[in-house]
Write a protein that binds this DNA or RNA. Structure first.
Ligand code: DCP
Ligand code: MG
Ligand code: MG
Length: 1151
DNA sequence: ATCCTCCCCTAC
DNA sequence: TAAGGTAGGGGAGGAT
């Protein structure tokens, strides 16, 4: 754990954080998550044919859901209102002003509730929308009244709750003491607010925000999150940014290869050519053109396009009178200039200016400033409200317009993108600036908003050109004139150079790019790091060799709130963590991703910072804490994420009252896109190529030979949801795991500390609690969980941190060294992806289908070997009685439900042998003291151990029996059994010693009991075995009773202190480990195997190597049974080839 | 050396 | 009042 606080003071807005501006977090709520629904349904219904809807504002279901529904049923979905094309507006709630606006428009179209779509689909026909109008004529007045009332309420509320602005952080920082003349202040404020009210009528607020206001100031309020997010501009621009990155991906996927805009340009050019050729019909003319074209083709032309003061422009696009006025978009209503500004040190409104007009910028106002500060600079500044819907509408027009010329687009944000215009200019014969004029005019005409473009030979130049062009203009910065231009720039003008870097450079006496050019690369790298130094070195010369990032791949999903966090106690904190978990989970699911890493990000009030922040509900100066946890499998389950998050929270022991910001980030994503063939395949292919290399390198790789089914099974899982049969045995992996893991200082603390002594009441109650939770989880996630368990692991090599999500996704696709690749098509890694991408979509899909078909066949083939494993297992037992195989013990404990007389005989045969061996070992035990259970453990717990032995057996068998019942898919008892299973999981692993009587727990017990009894009676039939088996079981159970750390230590001790491998130790450990999959303790299993590996690789003893391989192989078998997949564990390669080969023989022998 | 984790920094 | 989010590149330093 670490915490840090920024301590430099170059502050961009000069306020509050000696820390400069705070980075912040948040999450988003609805919308976006674009779906390729139209592709997913091969025969879409035609229900909504001819209907085109535009969804306005928040709806239930969300606009994305509605979009999907429309697409599924043959309708159209417009991202913005298209007069004469959009047939219906869908809204759950519209401000009166919007209703009037639509009604007044030239062709008024109906505004319907979303239910119209839902009901129509349910009815299978388009119902009469008249019955679903949002507001009939009669209710207009009503809605207007409500609206006004609500507004009044807000203002009253504002007056009464107006805060005394004591403890302004800035005053603290600057040492200025402010007298808190509260009363006077309040009076002033009230008075000013009255003035504001009066002013408000001729201010330019549009009041478009939601007309439903609830009290959502506290994280405890149900509406807090949604209110915050729906008002957060930063949330808006962040989510819209990714929305448009996805949007260009989607446009590219759906593209029919036609570019209407470009075609127009080409026609224009042809017309021009005809004109010129009539003038002079000579061949040389063509040649000149030709050479011109060739010349152009050689240099790349990148366009950067960015709306001018975007929020302002959209806000005033229908208010020509405000053009050229100093305008700012802020939340603060009305003109707060008179409210707080007293001409002295006070800051005035701390509402942030999202965007300000160029008139305002002339006075020094900047985006991101506090309104109070801006008003000091520009007393005439007028404020307007946010219009998030409007921004969206304009953004889509911007993107659609550019997309009509090219799809070589890299989206940057909702108002900004790069586009590779090389082809456009080549095909149209236009110069960059000619094209700029055309496209800018087009966008301005469509949106009524000014836009600037920059062109350059790389993206840096394009970007700098835009900056130079603004406002409402264009510029072309080429390799020729870049040199001169760079000399006019400050370092701060370079993209990527922010406050900190500027500050550092300033300390080095570097202010301009020209200064920077004089600094050597090595100095820069020393000061800023390798990459950053290099980047600076190039940038200040106008050089940039980075390519446009056309295909966006998401690497993380997060949700953060650093506003309004004021917890009273731990309950509040946990409650909010829970809500935020839900939020981040929803977002994960919306992008069809699962993640393997959970990070909790916290902002904690700095010690010296006042409890009340200057900014209302702001975070003030803070320390930052992040803590992450890696999971063994990717998850998108809210229960798992919540538990992990709360676990981390509990581990940190922070004061809830001091929290000022909370964020949850999920990374190491695996994207489960069903139809995103392209992206996946690209990565799949490249991954395949990588893995091939990797595979060759590790041809001795233990795990490859350990499990010949590995590859096929991986593919099976890999082919994802549709092919993964639902298995109740794969549920609740992390629930169980979380319950089982030793938790520091959590409510589970009793369980963990009760290692040997039976603990009664306490433990029982915790168990029940856990049981309830599990039950709940079980039901809520019955369907999803089974699918979630693609077990991956940490790749033994090349587990690069920067894997892309798709690489992760295909982690299991480790191809065998050839045998599984029976494609007739070329080896996939030989396919040139750029060629493939260029193919028409239908042909491309054909190739993909072919490819998928192959894969599927393999998957089906792969399904069998899972069963074969158990067959092989039996066979091996029969064939090789002398081989002491931990399978035997496991099998016995598992009480395999497919009774096989031969096998049973074999088991007892083996057990007898084992018993003999154990006897021998026991006689040596005192001397060698190499037993796995360790002295302390044995001595400390011997008594209770023996006393409880029967119970332990009983419990274990119950557990196993219940599980096996599940596996046997006795459907009608599934639910109860699952409960049973969960109870036992918790019980048997976390508080093993308290398992006295659990049979009363539920009805399913009866069935489970039956199996136990059978099992026990069989066991008791063989007295000789009984004793030693109990001992083994006891050993295994001891391992279960130990906290993970101690098991780890036991293993370390065992391996490092023993010269020979004690078979009983091996048996105990292997059995223990092999039961972990069934207990869903995959993460523990993984840790332990890694520990084992680490210890064993330290010595050169091939016996140990073999022991490790046997253990792994054994464990993998149960991984296969439980998860249909292998755990990724490191392999051992011995210098002695006989060791490796010997292992091979072993494998062959076994299988 | 290489990886992992916890940061920092930046952009919009 | 005010709505200070989000994603990605990258570096430092400890663990392996
Ligand atoms: N600190 C910031 C920066 C930006 N934005 C929002 C409002 C902007 O309008 C929009 C686009 O950001 P730009 O950087 O493109 O700034 P503008 O479009 O406002 O101005 P410019 O003309 O410089 O592009 O993002 C914001 O809310 N807060
Ligand atoms: Mg802009
Ligand atoms: Mg921009």
């Amino acid at each position: 754990m670490s915490r840090k606080k920024r301590d430099h003071a170059w502050g961009e807005n000069g306020f509050e954080d000696w820390g400069g501006y705070m980075a912040a977090k948040k999450a988003k709520l609805e919308e976006q998550f674009r779906d390729t629904a139209n592709k997913e349904f091969k025969e879409p219904s035609k229900l909504f044919e001819g209907i085109a809807v535009f969804v306005n504002g928040y709806t239930d279901p969300t606009s994305d859901e509605l979009r999907r529904l429309m697409m599924m049923h043959g309708g159209l979905y417009h991202h913005y209102m298209r007069p004469k094309i959009t047939t219906h507006i869908i809204a759950s709630n519209l401000p009166y002003s919007k209703i009037i606006m639509y009604r007044k428009s030239q062709n008024p179209i109906p505004i319907c509730k979303p239910q119209w779509i839902i009901d129509s689909i349910a009815a299978g026909k388009v119902l009469n929308f008249q019955n679903y109008l949002l507001y009939s004529n009669n209710t207009n007045v009503q809605s207007l009244l409500t609206y006004k009332l609500n507004n009044k309420k807000i203002e009253d509320n504002a007056n009464s709750t107006m805060h005394k602005e004591q403890d302004i952080e800035q005053s603290k920082a600057s040492g200025i003491v402010i007298n808190n003349e509260t009363n006077i202040n309040n009076q002033n404020i009230s008075k000013h607010n009255a003035i504001n009210d009066a002013l408000k009528h001729d201010t330019i607020s549009t009041h478009q925000s939601s007309n439903i206001k609830t009290n959502a100031q506290s994280t405890r309020d149900a509406e807090f999150l949604s209110t915050f997010y729906s008002n957060s501009r930063l949330h808006y621009i962040a989510t819209m940014g990714t929305t448009f990155k996805d949007y260009v991906n989607e446009l590219r996927d759906k593209s029919d290869g036609l570019f209407p805009g470009l075609d127009r340009l080409i026609k224009l050019k042809e017309a021009r050519d005809i004109l010129t050729s009539t003038d002079c019909e000579s061949d040389p003319e063509d040649e000149i053109y030709f050479t011109d074209k060739v010349k152009r083709k050689r240099e790349v032309i990148i366009m950067h396009i960015d709306m001018d003061c975007f929020f302002v422009s959209v806000g005033i696009r229908n208010r020509p009178e405000l053009r050229d006025q100093p305008i700012a978009v802020t939340h603060a209503k009305g003109n707060t200039f008179s409210a707080n500004y007293d001409g002295k040190e006070e800051f005035g409104s701390l509402s942030e200016v999202a965007s300000c007009s160029y008139a305002a910028r002339k006075t020094g106002v900047k985006n991101g400033m506090f309104l109070g500060e801006a008003l000091k600079l520009c007393p005439n500044l007028k404020t307007i409200q946010y219009d998030f819907e409007g921004y969206k509408e304009v953004s889509y027009i911007l993107y659609d317009t550019v997309a009509s010329y090219t799809l070589d687009i890299e989206a940057v944000s909702c108002d900004e993108m790069y586009a590779d215009c090389t082809k456009i200019l080549e095909a149209s014969g236009l110069s960059p600036l000619e094209f700029a004029t055309i496209i800018r005019k087009e966008i301005k005409q469509k949106t009524n908003c000014p836009v600037s473009t920059g062109f350059g030979n790389n993206r840096l130049q394009a970007r700098l050109a835009t900056r130079k062009a603004k406002p409402d203009n264009q510029f072309y910065l080429s390799n020729q004139n870049v040199e001169t231009h760079m000399r006019t720039l400050d370092t701060r003008d370079l993209p990527g150079v922010g406050g900190t870097t500027t500050y550092k450079l300033r300390k080095m006496n570097v202010h301009t790019c020209e200064d920077l050019q004089k600094v050597s690369l090595s100095v820069l790298q020393k000061e800023f790091g390798k990459k950053m130094g290099e980047q600076l070195h190039k940038m200040c010369r106008g050089l940039d060799d980075t390519k446009l990032n056309l295909e966006h791949i998401r690497k993380s999903v997060s949700a953060e709130v650093n506003y309004g966090i004021r917890f009273r106690n731990n309950g509040d904190a946990v409650d909010f963590l829970s809500k935020l978990s839900t939020e981040v989970c929803d977002r994960l699911i919306a992008v069809r991703a699962k993640g393997r890493c959970i990070t909790l990000k916290l902002m904690v009030r700095a010690e010296e910072a006042p409890v009340e922040t200057a900014k209302f509900m702001g975070h003030g100066p803070c320390n930052y804490i992040t803590k992450s946890k890696n999971l063994i499998a990717a998850v998108d389950d809210v229960n798992i994420i919540r538990k992990e998050v709360v676990n981390i929270w509990n581990q940190l022991h922070l004061t809830p009252e001091d929290m000022r910001g909370i964020g949850i980030q999920i990374s190491r994503l695996e994207i489960c896109k069903t139809k995103q063939n392209k992206g996946n395949l690209i990565n799949f292919f490249s991954k395949t190529a990588k893995l091939q290399t990797c595979d060759q390198m590790s041809s001795n790789d233990d795990k490859n030979r350990c499990d010949p089914n590995f590859n096929e099974n991986s593919k099976l899982n890999n082919s994802k949801v549709p092919l993964t049969s639902e298995s109740s045995g794969t549920k609740n992996i992390f629930e169980a795991q979380i319950n089982n893991l030793p938790l520091t200082k959590s409510s589970n603390v009793h369980k963990d500390e009760s290692s040997a002594i039976p603990c009664n009441v306490q433990t029982e109650s915790t168990t029940t609690e856990a049981e309830d939770k599990n039950l709940h989880n079980c039901k809520a996630h019955e369907n999803t969980k089974a699918k979630n368990l693609e077990i991956s692991g940490i790749s033994s090599k090349k587990a690069t941190q920067k894997q892309t999500s798709q690489e992760n996704f295909f982690k299991h696709t480790k191809p065998s060294s050839g045998k599984s690749l029976k494609y007739e098509i070329p080896r996939i890694q030989d396919i040139d992806m750029s060629v493939l991408i260029e193919l028409p979509e239908d042909i491309r899909n054909e190739i993909f289908d072919e490819y998928k078909r192959n894969k599927k066949q393999q998957s089906q083939v792969a399904a069998d070997p899972v069963n074969k494993v158990s067959d092989d297992e039996k066979n091996s037992n029969i064939q090789d009685c002398s081989q002491v195989d931990p399978d035997v013990l496991s099998a016995l404990m598992k009480n395999d439900l497919h009774p096989d007389v031969q096998r049973d005989v074999q088991i007892y045969c083996n057990m007898k042998r084992e018993a003999n061996r154990v006897n021998l070992n026991e006689s040596n035990e005192n001397k060698s003291s190499k037993q796995l259970q360790g002295a302390s453990l044995s001595s400390k717990t011997n008594n209770s151990k023996n006393q409880n032995a029967k119970h332990i057996v009983n419990n274990t068998c119950t557990n196993e029996a219940a599980c096996i019942l599940q596996e046997d898919k006795i459907l009608h008892t599934r639910d109860q059994l699952r409960e049973k299973d969960d109870v036992n999981k918790t019980d048997s692993t976390s508080c093993r010693n308290s398992r006295i009587e659990i049979s009363h727990n539920n009805a399913a017990m009866d069935k489970a009991d039956t199996f136990i009894l059978q099992n026990l009676s069989i066991l008791h039939n063989n007295e000789n075995i009984d004793k030693h088996q109990e001992m083994l079981i006891t050993l295994v159970n001891h391992l279960f009773a130990l906290p993970l750390q101690q098991v780890k230590m036991q293993i370390q001790t065992w391996i490092t202190k023993s010269k020979v491998v004690n078979e009983v130790d091996f048996l105990s450990l292997a059995t223990f480990l092999s039961m972990l999959p069934q207990k869903k303790r995959i993460e523990d299993l993984h840790i332990l195997l890694k520990t084992m590996h680490r210890c064993i690789t330290k010595n050169d003893d091939c016996t140990w190597h073999k022991t490790y391989r046997r253990t792994v192989k054994h464990v993998q078998r149960y991984m296969q049974i439980e998860y249909n997949n292998n755990l990724m564990v490191p392999s051992i390669r011995c210098n002695d080839s006989r060791c490796n080969n010997g292992d091979c023989e072993f494998e062959i022998l076994e299988i």
